[in-house]
Design a protein around this nucleic acid. Sequence first.
DNA 1: CATGAATGAGGTTTCATTCAT
DNA 2: TATGAATGAAACCTCATTCAT
Lengths: 202, 202, 202, 202
Amino acid sequence: MQRPDEKKRQLIVATAAKMFAARPFHKVRLDDIAAEAHLGKGTLYVYFDNKEDLYISLIYDGFERLVENLRRELSATAADGSLLPAAEALRRAVDALVGFAFAHPHLFEMMRNVGEIKRLHAGEWKAKRQEFMELIANTIRRGVENGELTDQNPEMTAACLGGMVRSIMLFGPRDLGEREVAAQVYRLIGHGIIKRPCGKPQ
Amino acid sequence: MQRPDEKKRQLIVATAAKMFAARPFHKVRLDDIAAEAHLGKGTLYVYFDNKEDLYISLIYDGFERLVENLRRELSATAADGSLLPAAEALRRAVDALVGFAFAHPHLFEMMRNVGEIKRLHAGEWKAKRQEFMELIANTIRRGVENGELTDQNPEMTAACLGGMVRSIMLFGPRDLGEREVAAQVYRLIGHGIIKRPCGKPQ
Amino acid sequence: MQRPDEKKRQLIVATAAKMFAARPFHKVRLDDIAAEAHLGKGTLYVYFDNKEDLYISLIYDGFERLVENLRRELSATAADGSLLPAAEALRRAVDALVGFAFAHPHLFEMMRNVGEIKRLHAGEWKAKRQEFMELIANTIRRGVENGELTDQNPEMTAACLGGMVRSIMLFGPRDLGEREVAAQVYRLIGHGIIKRPCGKPQ
Amino acid sequence: MQRPDEKKRQLIVATAAKMFAARPFHKVRLDDIAAEAHLGKGTLYVYFDNKEDLYISLIYDGFERLVENLRRELSATAADGSLLPAAEALRRAVDALVGFAFAHPHLFEMMRNVGEIKRLHAGEWKAKRQEFMELIANTIRRGVENGELTDQNPEMTAACLGGMVRSIMLFGPRDLGEREVAAQVYRLIGHGIIKRPCGKPQ
DNA sequence: CATGAATGAGGTTTCATTCAT
DNA sequence: TATGAATGAAACCTCATTCAT
């Protein structure tokens, strides 16, 4: 007797991620995923309810990992045990985000359809997205409180971050390196592009 | 692109936009669009080659209008006939972008899948997107040249803008007004969120 | 433009009847029905919701015709406009039943699963079956009232009739003629409930 | 037909009977039977070759028991060792039939598809059904020979019996008692074929 | 013997597209 | 031009059966 195998689930998810990233949902056939994973078609249905469930799980799993990465980075502490300066934390968040985008371009690309998912799995998804937003927004709020940062609407800023990275990946110049992208995003979010004459507050 | 009955074409486009915005491509049936538009299914094929053509045309048309909006705003001249200051031009670009997003949420939401389209209609699309990018990037470059702005990679910044707006619309706090969104985006892109002590260059 | 064609519906029904009679439900493929009827597979779905709907419709249509036959026979009147004697009416009912069984063996055979259908389309079916029962039971009751017949439970008797015919067709000796079957059923049912005056042998 | 664990085989048969009676063959999944019986799916295959074998065995076993019941009843002898009068034997047959129908409604209901089975296991089944028919038909013939009964076609009459009971159970009035059903069937069948001496009302 | 994860042939069903009217 | 009945390729999914454990 065999037991449901987490390894196999991972194999399916990874294979599916590759396929779904390369072509739109309705052009990906489960037959192909099964073949690519060297599994029987029915096996997919042992681990997932249906095509959509597989798709959603895929993205959700990825997003979950991303949130974990973020949490780890943002909860890092300095030598003395205190939290990192907000600006430093923000840089790490950007790095984590961009790093994830480069490490899992499939997943990142697919998160475009998050709007669709929200309709289907509102509950779980909303909670996880809330986590994501809170991690960043709270960091910004902390910075605002201790005078490091200034932001009239940390929530909006948090919401922006993902979109910035995604847009650059999709529409920006070709062949950008991870470093460059992270640096540019951090510059934009951090200082913007308008030269401010000294002493003139924003 | 003039067809027998431009009114009818518009009706189809508008109906389709509504449907495609509400559900993903593969869940929208031509039957549904035809029914919703009170037209025969075959009529759709008088005006569009196939489902994908309809979908692409939809987004392309929308994007085209957006680009025209942008061009109009960015080519505005001051009383003396000179171009607007770059910062002011940028503000107008952000306003145009956000205004469009609020005016055509369906279209804006659908542009999420622009990546998909790129694969299909690389040619036309690439040119149009190039226009979009150039409009913004050139404005930034102009500002950099005349000392108003500073940006190490105007192309990336240009690429960012759309994503920022979209992210805020999708993931940001509920019930945001057009003004608020435009203001926040402009603040972020313009000055960022890090308080800079006077005299300390970025 | 073509209009939904009642002729085509009949063609589908007739073809399906043949197939479903020859093999059990789960061994009949819609592919086969479509091929046999020289129609596209999808055409079946223009006229019926799904396989089960086709199956049910099939039997229901047949049963409906049977009930109409019965009604015609039982409402026949003598030369003077009065209803037929109950015994005569009963004979006609049996003839109609057996005639139908011989004319539409497919349908009659399939009505075996009426129990199944009841669960699915309780409403319509129940009403139609009620009609069937009432036609026979009322005839018997009329005979009882005017002294022709005697039956302690006309409803049960009515319920019996179909089963008798079906059993004979299925399990009785081979190569029975319509006449023989009708005669035997009538003898069984008839002499059980017809008061025979003394001395008059059956 | 003894298997490793006869108890377990019985459990499977009983569970399957319940399921097959409630829904048609193609809607009963072996998964469901296994789950309902708290057994592994594979275990079913230890005791039966395949789904159809299970189904057939089920009905065949039931029918076999019914035939045994009938044989016992019909071979009963009077105090003096002679066989029972034909009319009395017939009554017992009807009682046995109705009793079985009430005791095993699942099985009885399933025998609807006996026609189907005939095609599949013609051999064994034909023999067993022949036994059933002979038991009844011979009893009738005996009655005819000794003047108790009159029947032009005992085989047809025998074939009828099962159908009568089944029809009443399925389509007759609700909430009939075993007694009532048996009585009515006996009256119908009996008074049709029993010579009634003059002046003796039914 | 008992199990249930794995399988994949083959089923039902969908729906973009065609074309006769 | 406008229609929607007809089509059938191709998709998703089921589930009887197998077999490693």
